[in-house]
Amino acid sequence: MPRHFAIVPAAGSGSRFGAEKPKQYLDLLGRPLIFHTLAALVACPDIERVWVVLVPDDPWWHRYDWSELGAKLETVACGGATRAESVGNGLGAAAMVAADDDWILVHDAARPCLDQAMLTRLFAELADDPVGGILAVPVADTVKRADAAQRVAATEPRDGLWQAQTPQMFRHGLLRAALASSRAVTDEAGAVEAMGLAPKLVRGDVTNLKVTWPADLALAAMILRARK
């Protein structure tokens, strides 16, 4: 049976958030934000190992105690200038133990509200899929396209539109090949799509939000508190 591994690219600075330190280290319920992200992954019995991809000179990681997350967690200091580069380097590290046919889950460091039900659904729906896929939610709001003056240029039909989330789950060999040929993509599915393949959309949940703005951090805290 193919095994499951996870990669969490955590080499970004979170510049849009505007904080003094990378957003993955911001406080969320008394822990660094990324702690909650990693806790969800290591708690999954089907995931054998979780690699966190850090920048080589990351000054923050070693300021915190990660021992509670257990032996599944490993760090690799090979983060790159882009997400694709960081994930590609992480896949290279994973190649020491992962076979081409094993599954790799790539999950955002700043998406701390992933739960086990989402992972169970992702594994179940992709178990025999020839391509792989991603968690996503249908777009619920009306979508406007802006012009240069930030006025409405057009209203876009939302039928068939989905908002991509993570984890994004693909075979190790396929994902390495895809990212090697498509470095400018903003997510792993985009690299797979560039190979002419169609990843499957697996219904996620709006609670699986990515912390991008300060208000998102407060919302993530509310979601995690409610689960407890």
Rank of each mutant, 00 (worst) to 15 (best):
G79D: 05
G79S: 11
G79M: 02
G79L: 04
G80Y: 07
G80A: 02
A81I: 13
A81E: 15
A81C: 03
T82D: 03
T82A: 02
T82H: 14
T82F: 10
T82P: 03
T82L: 13
T82G: 01
R83T: 09
R83A: 05
R83E: 11
R83L: 15
A84D: 02
A84W: 10
A84H: 08
A84F: 09
E85Q: 15
S86N: 06
S86Y: 00
S86F: 02
V87W: 05
V87Q: 10
G88K: 09
G88T: 00
G88V: 05
G88I: 04
G88N: 08
N89V: 01
N89M: 06
N89Q: 08
N89S: 00
G90Q: 00
G90T: 06
G90F: 08
G90M: 10
L91G: 10
L91I: 01
L91T: 08
L91W: 07
G92L: 01
G92I: 00
G92W: 07
A93E: 10
A93R: 11
A93H: 05
A93F: 00
A93D: 05
A94Q: 05
A94I: 01
A94V: 01
A94W: 10
A95K: 09
A95H: 00
A95T: 01
A95D: 00
M96W: 03
M96R: 14
M96H: 01
M96F: 00
A98R: 00
A98V: 10
A99I: 05
A99K: 12
A99S: 12
A99G: 14
A99N: 11
D100P: 13
D100T: 05
D100N: 15
D100W: 11
D100E: 15
D101E: 15
D101W: 07
D101H: 12
D102N: 10
D102C: 01
D102S: 06
D102M: 03
W103H: 08
W103D: 03
W103Q: 10
W103F: 09
I104G: 03
I104L: 15
I104C: 04
I104N: 03
I104W: 04
L105Q: 09
L105C: 12
L105A: 15
L105F: 14
L105R: 08
L105G: 00
L105S: 11
V106P: 04
H107G: 04
H107A: 08
H107I: 09
D108P: 02
D108N: 15
D108F: 02
A109L: 06
A109N: 10
A109F: 02
A109Q: 07
A109V: 00
A109R: 11
A110K: 14
A110R: 05
A110T: 13
A110C: 14
R111L: 11
R111T: 15
R111G: 13
R111P: 01
P112L: 12
P112F: 09
P112Q: 13
P112G: 12
C113Y: 06
C113E: 09
L114D: 13
L114H: 08
L114W: 07
L114A: 12
